[in-house]
């Protein structure tokens, strides 16, 4: 993947209104692997007693990251949409810490892209959540 393509993909993802509104930052995108950061924010809180962010916010960043991974796959899909996404929540994210998600698009057929992803906070040895998903493959560019 050339650096201009990375630029385009990065701009595309940063142009997603919801991702921008949540403050997502795409820090790495190459050959089917994407890294996106979600900084902690009070509006993401799901448990007001502890300040732990809502699972739905983790879903939003996982979905974006998986889609970005598909778009950056060397097979050059022209577009993609989520078919199915499963998220396993292993533990509560530590309040105040940035969530980092890394998604890998590990297989692409003519019609379907297969992706897995992991979400971490500062303790990267113990993931907060993992995801597996399938995505559509729209016309190749």
């Amino acid at each position: 993947m050339t650096s201009s393509k990375v630029q385009v993909a990065r701009q595309f993802i940063e142009a997603i209104p919801h991702s921008r509104d949540l403050g997502m930052q795409l820090t790495d995108l190459e050959d089917g692997i994407a890294t996106i950061l979600l900084p902690y924010d009070k509006k993401l809180i799901g448990d007001p007693d502890t300040g732990v962010i809502h699972g739905g916010a983790v879903s939003a960043v996982m979905d974006t990251c998986c889609g970005a991974a598909v778009m950056s796959h060397p097979s050059n899909p022209g577009g993609t949409a989520t078919i199915d996404l499963r998220i396993d929540y292993m533990r509560a994210a530590t309040p105040g810490q940035t969530i980092k998600t890394v998604a890998t698009c590990y297989h692409v057929t003519r019609n379907v892209a297969f992706v897995r992803a992991v979400a971490m906070d500062a303790d990267e040895e113990n993931p907060v959540a993992t995801a597996t998903g399938t995505f559509t493959v729209e016309g190749r560019r």
Binding site: A15, I16, P17, H18, S19, D21, H54, G55, G56, A57, S59, A60, V61, M62, D63, T64, G67, A81, T82, L85, I87
Partner: peptide, 24 residues
Amino acid sequence: DDKLIGNPLLPALHGGVTAAFLEV
């Protein structure tokens, strides 16, 4: 709301918003 859009070209709701809405 405009901030819930995931694909500005269609436009369509963000998949993460859909997931969050169903989870809530």
